[in-house]
């Protein structure tokens, strides 16, 4: 990193010294990052983030666009591996294991840390095959009946079963946007991950579909650890238990959602929450 560039960036953080709030948890964390830097070529996108994601909590990550929250999310299941120029420094632990360790198998990792994307991206296959895709490639089921059950359970958990149970063999691309996104969630659940990462899962959906997904997130939080990136502060307030505020690649403040939205400690967080920028 070019020092002069870094200096100018630093200067925009006149008030920032280190993350405010309880970024590290007292108890056992499902995932934790320690001093994590992310680079795209020469450009640094994430600066020394330390953050824990607790078991069965919903962590919302908010911040103005370009603040690095999506990039950070994608490092949590090594989705950035597909980008040649992307380099990661520091540690990211899943149940105490470093996921960037060379002994860590990325395929198995992603079966443990699933991901739901911004735009619904069902495969050009039938509804059934979309959900069955994960269990099949990983060889998680041995019999067809077992697979049927897994597919049904996943679809039920994603509360889309009633809408699609009669047309499981039809192409998934024929579903509405909201249904597609719930199908994608079902697809993720079907491999029984420990953590689900959601990258602005409602940004392409209408308000009604969004409401259904939000309900679903609340239900899922009973069994899964969820980290969600969102553009909408209201959504973060509705679905999350804890909120992290990112700004220009730095984690500015972390705290319980209530506190962040009512009494943030940091000036930048406050400015963002109150709509001075963003």
């Amino acid at each position: 990193m070019n020092t002069s560039v870094k200096d100018t960036m630093e200067s925009t953080f006149a008030g920032w010294t280190e993350t405010v709030g309880n970024a590290m948890l007292e108890g056992e964390a499902r995932m934790s990052t320690r001093n994590t830097d992310v680079f795209y070529g020469d450009k640094q996108a994430i600066f020394g983030v330390d953050l824990d994601i607790g078991k069965n909590e919903v962590l919302a990550m908010i911040g103005p666009s370009g603040c690095g929250k999506s990039t950070f999310l994608r490092t949590l299941n090594r989705m950035n591996d597909t980008i040649d120029i992307c380099k990661i420094k520091g540690e990211i632990l899943l149940d105490g294991e470093n996921i960037y360790d060379k002994n860590m198998d990325v395929v198995s990792l992603r079966a443990r840390v699933g991901m739901v994307f911004q735009k619904p991206n069902p495969f050009p296959k039938s509804i059934y095959d979309n959900v069955a895709y994960g269990p099949r490639i990983h060889g998680l089921v041995s019999r067809r009946a077992e697979l049927d059950e897994v597919v049904e359970t996943a679809l039920r958990k994603a509360s889309i079963w009633d809408e699609v149970k009669d047309r499981l063999d039809q192409p998934a691309t024929g579903l509405s946007g909201g249904q597609q996104q719930r199908l994608c969630i079902a697809r993720t659940i079907a491999v029984s991950p420990e953590v689900i990462l959601m990258d602005e899962p409602c940004s392409a959906l209408d308000p009604i579909a969004t409401a259904r997904i939000e309900e679903l997130i609340a239900e899922l939080s009973e069994n899964y650890t969820i980290a969600i990136v969102t553009h909408s502060m209201q959504q973060a307030a509705r679905v999350s238990t804890r909120t992290a505020y990112f700004h220009l690649g730095r984690l500015i403040e972390v705290g319980s959602t209530d506190k962040i939205f009512t009494a943030p400690d940091h000036k930048l967080t406050e400015d963002y929450i109150t709509g001075r920028f963003g």
Binding site: M115, P124, R187
Partner: peptide, 21 residues
């Protein structure tokens, strides 16, 4: 690329993604 991401995100290898998606 969103389709590829969807498949990688579920833990598919490259060849599985290419062949099946």
């Amino acid at each position: 690329n969103s389709l590829r991401d969807g498949s990688y995100g579920l833990g598919a290898t490259r060849s599985e993604t290419i062949k099946q998606v």
